[in-house]
Design a protein around this nucleic acid. Sequence first.
DNA 1: AAAAGCCCCTGGATGC
DNA 2: TGCATCCAGGGGCTTT
Length: 271
Amino acid sequence: MPELPEIEVTRLSFADAIAGAKVLSVRMGKALRWPLGCSVVELAGRSVLAVRRRGKYLLIDLDQGLLLLHLGMSGSLSFARHLPPAGSHDHFEMVTSHGTLRLNDPRRFGAVVYADSEDAPEARKLLGKLGMEPLAEGFDVNQFHAGLKRRKAAIKQVLLAGDVVVGVGNIYASEALFLAGIRPTRSAARLSRPRVVKLHAAIREVLARAVAKGGSTLRNFSSARGESGYFQLEVMVYARHGQACRVCGTPIKSLRQGQRSTFYCPHCQTS
DNA sequence: AAAAGCCCCTGGATGC
DNA sequence: TGCATCCAGGGGCTTT
C-alpha cells in the first residue's frame, strides 16, 4: 500500500502529536523483516523528539537513538490515546505519554529497527544508498539526469530501485511515466534531456498531488489518525489494463518488469 | 558497478 | 462450499 505519499501522509498525521512524548513501554509481536536490534525495556523512559521521513522510511528520533520504521507492502500505523485491543497483525506497539503508536502489518515485510544514530551501521545499511528526495529542494534536474545517464536499465525499474530518486513505488512510477509520455521500457540512459526534464516535473507533480489529497492507493490506505485517502486520486494507467486511456481512448497495456506489473498507454507514451 | 532473480509472508480475488 | 492458483503498495541480498 504505501509509497512516498502514503508514508508522508502517515507521518504528518501523528508527528506533532507524538513529539515530546515519553516512551512508557514497547511491545513486539511476531517477527517483522528484521529484529528490533535492542531490548524493548531500554527504550522505556526515552523521549520522542520528532518524526522524519527518508524515502519510504520513517525515522522516529528519540533523545537517545532513533527508530527506523518501514511499512513494507501491507503496513499501516495508528496513533491514538486509546486504541482497540491489539489484533493478530499488530506487531509493534509503543505506548507513550501522548498515545500509543501501533504497526499493523499482515505480510510482515515491514520493519522497526533501532539505531544509536543515523550514522550507525544498522541505519546506514538501510538509508545509505537512497537517492534524492523528490519533493525536496535538492531534487535537482541536472543531478537527476546524471543519475539516469549511468543506468542502461529500463526507466521504470530505475525509478523503482530508489538509488537515483526515492519514494516512487509501483503505482506512481507508472503514473509519472504516463504524465511524462515515456515508455516504461526505455533505457534510462537514453532519455533525451527534454524527456528527463518532463519526468522530473511529472514525479514531483504526481507525488505532491497525492500527498495533498491525503494519500491515494487502490485499497484501503488510512493515516495514523484513521483518515482515508481511498480513491481520492484517479489513476491514469495503474491497474487499468484493457481499459480506455483517459486521454486518447487507446486500451491500456500491461507488462512485467522485474516481477512487478507496469501499465502504460501505447499511444500517449511513445518515447 | 550494474542488472536480474529470489525471497520474505498473508489474504483477497478468481476459477474449477 | 472447498481448494488451488495467482497476484498485491517493497526492497535487501545473492548471483550473474
